[in-house]
Nucleic acid binder design. Structure first.
Lengths: 164, 164
DNA sequence: CAGGTAAGTTGCAAGCAGAAACTATTGCTG
DNA sequence: CAGCAATAGTTTCTGCTTGCAACTTACCTG
């Protein structure tokens, strides 16, 4: 990664989707609210007491996450005071990002295995480290990656299409 | 994920390492600076002109990333005006997180394949989607995950140890 | 109806982000 | 060596964001 085509890299980074992702999830409490959602929190007061976040900020962040389509806001029919916030598919799709970030924190910041740990429900064995992989599952490291323009990409089985 | 042990989930989230990770990487420009580093930016002026970030904020963020051990700051011997900022191993370890976030943005925000794309240097085929996987490589989805305490974990081949 | 719960909103103080100008070294050129 | 440009910041000032506490509005429960 990097080297001969250094100059063009400046150009390419322009339409990287990272800024778009960060606009949706880059604010201070967004990821912690998301984690709450993954862990089964659904109501305003739950988030508030669990995260210790200020009420106005929480209201603002929930509204933004709903606006971005990451959470869905729906009034409870059986108790019309209550509002349920639930993850959308778009929200669930952030799971790999969140796990990767958590694993990084575990390895490099807290430096403890941090029980309880996420396990595969089928065999109760811990999940693997989230890695960057080639199309065939080989784990790729820093030296194994290259930026490529359309014409340079081997185009027989483009994984990207499958996710669309 | 979630269900019978709902109540205990509140407790468990306490020593999750996500907050620790966010303290290091959760600020506004941190991920974009990191992306710059992955893309070969090394100097203050490069980051500044590339990202369009205010100089004081950039100085502050670079200092923090160095402080957290994500970047390494070293004066250039051949031009002593220049400072090089380089990724440490800890910084490189954020690659899966960054790719996952970028892929999410590509799929759900910008909604375009966004060339140029990252490919495996060996065969120039696009990298796979970053996923959460079981120890044997099976892709896990939302229903397949469970929080487990030490005693509930099948403990024959704990992947986590390998990463330490 | 009284009292409590849920989900916000408002007002205010402190802190952080951003733009522009300034500084301090170091290197380059004549 | 003098003067200018490049590099990596720092300072100053302004405006937005965060955070706390109190208030509000709708709804449920006895």
């Amino acid at each position: 990664m990097g080297g001969a085509i250094r100059e063009s890299l400046r150009e390419l980074a322009k339409d990287c989707s990272l800024p778009a992702a960060l606009e949706a999830m880059g604010e201070r409490w967004s990821f912690l609210i998301l984690r709450g959602s993954f862990n089964g929190l659904n109501h305003f007061e739950e988030f508030q007491s669990e995260l210790g976040i200020a009420r106005n900020i929480l209201a603002n962040r929930l509204a933004r996450l709903v606006d971005k389509g990451i959470l869905e806001r729906r009034p409870c029919p059986e108790d019309r005071r209550k509002i349920e916030y639930r993850l959308t598919d778009k929200g669930y799709a952030l799971l790999p990002t969140m796990i990767a970030l958590r694993q990084w924190g575990e390895r490099w910041e807290t430096c403890v295995p941090a029980f309880p740990v996420l396990v595969d429900a089928r065999d109760r064995r811990p999940i693997a480290q989230v890695t960057v992989q080639a199309h065939d599952g080989r784990v790729l490291h820093k030296g194994d990656l290259l930026w490529a323009l359309p014409e340079d990409v081997a185009d027989d089985v483009p994984e990207m299409r499958a996710a669309e």
